[in-house]
């Protein structure tokens, strides 16, 4: 009652080759691919750089908003007005001598 057909070894080899091939591909893709490890590290670095840039710009906006308020019609900080008139417009008081 043997009933078993004799297995030829060729199918196993194909299976093994395909499996190893797919394994190598997926390993390569998971490291080098567009969604792989290296890309993830690169994206994280970019994100960090952009976050730093954003924080710098937020600080710069806050500083400029503060200056804008203090030079606005309903606030007018005289010290800052004096400072900006000198720095931005290059103004000096009439009795001052500029030494270059």
């Amino acid at each position: 009652m043997s009933g078993h057909r004799k297995q030829t070894g060729f199918g196993g080899v194909i299976f093994f080759v395909v499996t190893v091939g797919l394994g190598l591909y997926f390993t390569f893709a998971s490291v080098q691919g567009d969604y792989g490890l290296f890309r993830r590290v690169q994206i994280r670095a970019e994100a960090q750089t952009l976050t730093g840039e954003r924080d710098r710009l937020v600080a710069e906006i806050a500083a400029l908003s503060n200056k804008t308020l203090r030079l606005s019609d309903d606030y007018l900080d005289l010290d800052l007005l004096d400072q900006q008139a000198r720095e931005m417009l290059g103004m000096v008081r009439s009795n001052e001598v500029v030494l270059r």
């Binding site: 005289l78 010290d79 007005l81 004096d82 900006q84 008139a85 000198r86 103004m91 000096v92």
Partner: peptide, 12 residues
């Protein structure tokens, strides 16, 4: 602060 410097007088 009673007033402002010469350079900024037009604004005030």
């Amino acid at each position: 602060a009673l007033d402002q410097s010469g350079g900024s007088t037009p604004k005030a």
